[in-house]
């Protein structure tokens, strides 16, 4: 098996290495990907049409809204899949010996966590809200918010984290995020335009067509952040307890 693995890796690697000489040079401005009309349009017109300086956020949430919507659905399905595979209800088996009790970490780690947790969560919300002007957005802020609950579970035990973010609330938040995203698209349909065409919302959002698109991006990013937060925490809590959700790491 090792021999055939090595052989196939060498053959495929040789083919790919010989293909690299047809690639455009590193940092080539005139390569097909960089000089094509699509990316040039994004770079030149994004700020004019949406008033969002961060092109990545604008393309993510507006121009390629369908893509992001279904990526969020993929994350949701993966989280549901983890629950379906691992979650066990009812009779608790004996807990393995290598898992410590539910008292969490030591005093020093607890005090440090209680000091920095509010700032982590505040920064995560800032990343979600300020993604239009700086690096960030729904995915990053959502992961950071989920990581703050993971930190709470590591320092104070899973029971403490579950009292803030119970399993039922996790699932409700995950579904609510997708509901906000899809509902925003349906709202565009109701206003008489295409699905996820935010410029139709300028009659109910302040600031004209460009600002309507900018504000709609914020709403959509909040939906993404809710789903990602909930799924990240649910993933950790299921994986660290083998689906019993009683004693954490």
């Amino acid at each position: 098996m090792k021999f055939f693995g090595l052989l196939s890796v060498i053959i495929v690697g040789f083919l790919l290495l010989s293909a690299t000489k047809d690639f455009p040079n590193w940092g080539d401005e005139d390569s097909p990907a960089n000089s094509g009309p699509v990316s040039s349009f994004y770079i030149e017109k994004t700020e004019e049409k949406t008033k969002v300086p961060n092109m990545v956020t604008a393309v993510l949430a507006d121009y390629r809204g369908y893509d992001t919507m279904f990526e969020t659905v993929v994350i949701f399905i993966a989280g549901i899949g983890i629950i379906a595979v691992l979650r066990t209800y009812g009779s608790n088996e004996s807990i393995p010996k290598n898992q410590v009790g539910d008292e969490g970490a030591g005093l020093l780690a607890r005090m440090t966590c209680s000091l920095i947790l509010p700032f982590i969560q505040l920064f995560a919300l800032y990343v979600v809200a300020h993604g239009h002007h700086s690096p960030g957005g729904g995915f990053q802020g959502g992961v950071m918010l989920g990581a703050s609950y993971i930190l709470l579970a590591l320092a104070y035990g899973l029971a403490r984290a579950k009292s803030c973010f119970s399993e039922k609330r996790t699932l409700v938040f995950a579904a609510l995020g997708i509901f906000i995203y899809v509902g925003w698209g349906v709202l565009c349909l109701v206003m008489g335009s295409e699905f996820l065409n935010y410029s139709a919302l300028d009659s109910i959002l302040p600031g004209g067509v460009e600002m309507a698109r900018s504000h709609s991006m914020l709403a959509v990013e909040i939906g993404v952040a809710l789903t990602v937060t909930a799924i990240m925490f649910s993933m950790f809590s299921n994986l660290s307890t083998k689906g019993r959700l009683d004693k954490g790491l």
Binding site: N54, V56, P135, V143, I150, M235, T241, K242, L249
Partner: peptide, 26 residues
């Protein structure tokens, strides 16, 4: 690619390491 780097710092180095360690412990 600052957005991608930010995502990787939060996801790859944070969450995926944590869930991998959770699996190794259990």
């Amino acid at each position: 690619a600052v957005d991608v780097a930010f995502t990787e710092a939060a996801v790859g180095a944070g969450v995926s390491t944590v869930i991998m360690i959770a699996t190794v412990f259990s």
